[in-house]
Design a protein around this nucleic acid. Structure first.
Lengths: 152, 152
DNA sequence: CCTGAAAAGCCGCTACC
DNA sequence: GGTAGCGGCTTTTCAGG
């Protein structure tokens, strides 16, 4: 999208903190009419700035409070291999984030599971699918912050 | 919450993939009445299983596509220091995730910014606030997956 | 063309069976 | 757990700047 002005930014800030807010109170806060506010929201949605509306679930309440970061070094660096590797990792639902990195770690995964034993299952599933040079896991002891709100 | 059955899990799966779904189509998919479905959703919300409903924003569309992971080793390990450190880091909006880790890295941050130069500003703000033994950043080159959906 | 007001219709919510 | 009605919100339409 070309133009995102301050009003849009305020709208986005409100929506990413609570998407169940009514158009009326949103319009109030932004000091525009309900209608104009509605059009802006639609425009932001259609442009893909707002990519989706979701419910966030408390990991503790569903027994998935263990976060594990997995640093991976690969043996093979060909495009074809990467393709296979990427789709294999993406299809694992416990892998909630997956990045190709700069530096000596090639890939970084964030895995969300219930226990260390659960992680081990994911680990085994991972190494069964692709050949990896080095896989090292670090476990989170405590989550001090975890937000989906971008700093707009 | 005590009891989360398969029906609840299906509801949660639907909600965390698209919270704008109507109660009607949700009830259909789960094969229960609209009323019962509504009651279940309310119950899950009140129990805090559904912690919030938010809009997700495409980082690329707002110029915040640079993800940086920051590994921190601390000098001081007292409870008072941790308190100060934690609230200082939590108040930085660019820090979207923040974990105390097991292993030789004490803390891991995920920082969402627009550029490497932006990260440098966050870095400077960070070290200005607290005394740290070691801060090392790794930059993500490509995001292959990033979901808020837990593996239920 | 864009904005604001107001009407129409749908859906969430409640109350009752 | 089901049904029906009310109320509020989204969405559309229309008039004015």
């Amino acid at each position: 999208m070309e133009n995102i002005d301050d009003t849009d930014r305020t709208i986005l800030r409100l929506l990413q903190s609570d998407s169940s807010i009514s158009l009326e109170s949103m319009a109030d806060r932004v000091s525009i009419s309900v209608n104009t506010c509605w059009r802006r929201v639609k425009r932001l949605e259609e442009a893909g700035v707002v990519s989706r509306r979701v419910a966030l679930i408390d990991p503790e309440k569903v027994g998935l409070a263990q976060t594990v970061f997995v640093a991976i070094r690969t043996r093979d660096h060909s495009a074809a291999w990467l393709q296979r590797f990427a789709s294999a990792v993406q299809s694992i639902p416990e892998v909630v984030e997956f990045y190709r990195m700069a530096g000596d770690v090639d890939y970084l995964l964030k895995v969300q599971v219930g226990s260390v034993a659960d992680y081990d299952r994911v680990y085994k599933a991972l190494i069964a699918k692709v050949d990896l040079a080095d896989v090292s896991a670090t476990f989170a002891m405590e989550c001090l912050k975890n937000t989906t709100e971008l700093p707009l």
